[in-house]
Amino acid sequence: MLTLDHYLVLSAILFFLGAVGVMVRAQIIVVLMCLELMLNAVNLAFVAFARHLGSVEGQVIVLFVMVVAAAEVAVGLAIAVAIFRQKGAVGIDDLRVMKW
């Protein structure tokens, strides 16, 4: 029997994987995917809570989050393309013009 806790643990693991991925992965595309993973982990938590509490609010929020995530990744990929055109590569290491 799957309980709320199972979903929450899964969502926490996914969120953690996404967050670590953003910090350690070397490809911008993979980093963007990890951002998506974080947001989808959040969505899972929202849906699980909504089901548990019997409230529609959580499910509505998920729809909004999905729209926003799509918009964000569209802009992210556009910037990645622009960087690729100028530098011929899209690694995180290519973002090194500025350093304090």
Binding site: F15, G18, A19, V22, I28, V31, L32, L35, M38, L39, V42, E72, V75, G76, I79, A80, A82, I83, Q86, L95, V97, M98
Partner: peptide
Amino acid sequence: KSKEAAMKYLILGGFASG
């Protein structure tokens, strides 16, 4: 520099909104 700024802002901003 401007592209790099945008990308850094997007990644960290996305992380923060996550």
